[in-house]
Amino acid sequence: MKRGSLLSGKIWPLHVLFAAGVVVIWQLLVLHAGNEVLFPNLDSVGAALWDLTSSGKLHSAMLESLRLLFTGFTFAFVGAFFLGVIMGSSKAIGMALLPLMSFIYCVPLIALLPLLLMWFGFGFTGRMVVVAYSSFFPVLLNVYAGVRETPSDLVEVAQSIGLTGRLAQFRHVVLPSSVPFVMAGFRLGIGRAVVGMAIAEVFLRLGGIGALIVENGARFRTAYVIAAIVPLPLLGIALTKAAARFEQRVQYWRYTAVSE
C-alpha cells in the first residue's frame, strides 16, 4: 500500500527531498573546507543571486544570451531541416553527404573553435555560428531519419488514391509522418544550443551569462560564479520541457490513448 501510494503519488516531494540532500551535502563541504573561494556558503550564493538580479545584471546578461541562442538555433534548425529533407528524399544525396556530416558531427566543438574564430570572428556572427554549429546536427540527423523512415505502405496508399507527385506525397505522407522525428531533433538541438551559447560567450568575445561567469571567476568571487551558472541548466531544462510539451501536442494521435 505505502509503496504504491508513494509511486503513484506526485513526484515533486521526491525532487524536494533530493534537492534538500544536495543542500545538506554542500553545506557539509562548506563547513569542512572553511574556504569561501572553494565552497561558498549558500547564504553568499543567495546574496550574490539577489545582487545580480536586483542590479539588473542577470536580466540584461540573460537577454543578450537568449538573443544569441535564438538567432543561432533558428538558423541551425531551418538549415538542418531543409538539408535533412533533401538528404532524406534523394538516396544519392543522402548517401553522398552522410559520411561528411557524421564526420563533422564527431569533431568536438572546442577543437573547431579556433577555425570558427578565424572564419567568422569574435563578434555576434562568430558566436552565432558556434551556437548554430552545436545544435545543427541533432536536428539534421533526426529530420533525415524521419524522412528516410516514411512508412512505405502509406506512400502506396497515397499513390493509390491519386497522390502520385513527389510534392503531394511529401505534404501528405512524408512531412506528417516525420513530425515526431523533427520534434525530437528540436528538443535535442535546443539543449545543445544552450551549451554552445555558454561556450561561445566564454571563449569568444565575452558576453551575456558567459561573461558574468568568467569575470567573476577571474576575481575569485565563487558565489557569483555559481549564481551565474544556475540559470543555464534551468534555461536548458525549461526549453527542453517546453519542446517536449509541444512535441506531445503535435503527436496527439500517439498520446491521447495513454492519457485517457
Binding site: 505502405d153 502506396e156 509522418s177
Partner: peptide
C-alpha cells in the same frame, strides 16, 4: 477507376 483495401489497413495515424 480502382481503389484498394489494404491488408495492413494503411490508415494515416495523424
Amino acid at each position: 477507376d480502382r481503389a484498394v483495401v489494404f491488408q495492413s489497413f494503411g490508415l494515416f495515424p495523424w
